[in-house]
C-alpha cells in the first residue's frame, strides 16, 4: 500500500467515514425538509439538542442505542416548534430557523449542566469476524459501529423513496408547487410537518453521534458549526441524495487529512491546514452555483415559501 508521509490511505478513509457521520445524517435530513419546500436553518440547534438529549438518555439508561433514539427525539421535538411556527403561524422560515439554532444552543447548555466530564456508555464497532481482517477493504468497510452503516443506508433509502415511491412523488410535488399539490388534494401542511420531524430526528441523531461516539463527552457548543456545514452540503449536493454522501465525505476527508498532515510534521503552516475544509466548502459552493444557475435550477421551486390554503 502506498503511503504518503506515514498516512495510510485505508486508515484515512476509515476515519473520514466516521468523521462525516454527523454532517451526513444532518444533511440528508435537511435535504428531505428542503425537498418538501421548507428551509430550516435550525440544523445546528437541532443537532446540539440531539447531542445533549442523546447523552443524557445514554448515561441514564446505560444503553447507547436508546441514546441515539433519545437524540433523535430531542432533535424532533425542537423541530416540532419550528413546524408550529412556520406551518401553523406561517412565520418567516429563515428567521425562525436562525432563532431555533440560538435557542437550541442555549437550551442544550442549560440541560447539560452537571453532565460535563461524564463518560457515556461505549458504542462498539460491529463484529464482522474474519471479514475485518481482509487487507485494506476490511479496515475501510468492516471496522465501524452501526451508525456509520446506518448513515449510508439512510441516504440510500431517501434516494429510493424520493425516486421510486409515491410518497417521494408527493413530497417533491409539495416542494415544487404547493398550490398544485394542494389542488390535487394533498395535505401540504401535514407533508411538511412530517418532513420537518424527519429532518429534526436525523439532525438529532447526528448530534448524538458527536456526544456518544466521536468525542465521546458532553460539552457546551459541541457541534461547533457542524449544522452549518450540513446546510452547505445540501446545496453542494444540489438536492441529490448521493451527492450528499460525496459532499460529506469530502468535507470529513479534508478535516481528517489536515490533522494527519500536522501529526506527520508537514511543512504547510497549521493555519492554512485548519482553514482548508471550510475554504474548500466555499470554493465548491462557488463553482457549483457559477454554472449558470444549474444548482439553483435544481432547488425545489417552493423552497422557503409559506403556504396557506386560502391563498
Amino acid at each position: 500500500m502506498m503511503e504518503f508521509c506515514g498516512i495510510n490511505p485505508a486508515v484515512l478513509v476509515a476515519s473520514l467515514m466516521v468523521a462525516s457521520v454527523p454532517i451526513l445524517l444532518a444533511a440528508i435530513g435537511e435535504l428531505v425538509v428542503e425537498k418538501s419546500g421548507v428551509l430550516n436553518l435550525g440544523v445546528e440547534g437541532m443537532m446540539i439538542m440531539g447531542a445533549i438529549c442523546g447523552f443524557i438518555t445514554a448515561v441514564s439508561t446505560g444503553s447507547p442505542l436508546l441514546g441515539f433514539l433519545g437524540g433523535a427525539a430531542g432533535g424532533a421535538v425542537l423541530s416540532l416548534m419550528f413546524a408550529f411556527l412556520t406551518q401553523v403561524l406561517l412565520a418567516n422560515q429563515v428567521a425562525t430557523g436562525l432563532a431555533l439554532t440560538l435557542f437550541g444552543l442555549g437550551l442544550s447548555s442549560l440541560m447539560g449542566q452537571g453532565y460535563n466530564g461524564i463518560k457515556p456508555p461505549l458504542t462498539e464497532a460491529l463484529n464482522f469476524g474474519p471479514l475485518s481482517d481482509i487487507p485494506v477493504l476490511g479496515r475501510i468497510l468492516f471496522s465501524h459501529d452501526w451508525v456509520v452503516y446506518a448513515s449510508v443506508a439512510i441516504i440510500a433509502a431517501v434516494w429510493a423513496v424520493l425516486k421510486y415511491t409515491r410518497t417521494g412523488l408527493i413530497l417533491r410535488a409539495v416542494g415544487e408547487n404547493h398550490d398544485a399539490a394542494h389542488a390535487l388534494g394533498y395535505k401540504v401542511g401535514l407533508v411538511r410537518l412530517l418532513a420537518i420531524l424527519f429532518g429534526g430526528a436525523l439532525a438529532g441523531m447526528g448530534g448524538a453521534y458527536l456526544s456518544l461516539v466521536r468525542v465521546p463527552q458532553w460539552t457546551d457548543g459541541i457541534t461547533a458549526g457542524a449544522g452549518w456545514i450540513a446546510l452547505a452540503i445540501v446545496v453542494f449536493a444540489s438536492w441529490k441524495p448521493w451527492r450528499v454522501l460525496i459532499g460529506g465525505y469530502l468535507f470529513g476527508g479534508i478535516s481528517v487529512l489536515q490533522l494527519n498532515l500536522q501529526a506527520c510534521g508537514s511543512r504547510i503552516p497549521v493555519e492554512y491546514l485548519s482553514m482548508s475544509p471550510y475554504l474548500i466548502t466555499i470554493l465548491v459552493l462557488v463553482i457549483m452555483s457559477s454554472g449558470r444557475g444549474r444548482a439553483a435550477l435544481n432547488a425545489p421551486a417552493s423552497l422557503g415559501q409559506s403556504f396557506h390554503a386560502s391563498r
Partner: peptide, 13 residues
C-alpha cells in the same frame, strides 16, 4: 471534539 480528533490523527500516525 477537536482534542479527540487530534488524538485520533496521532494514533493513526
Amino acid at each position: 471534539a477537536k482534542e479527540a480528533d487530534a488524538a485520533k490523527a496521532l494514533i493513526e500516525q
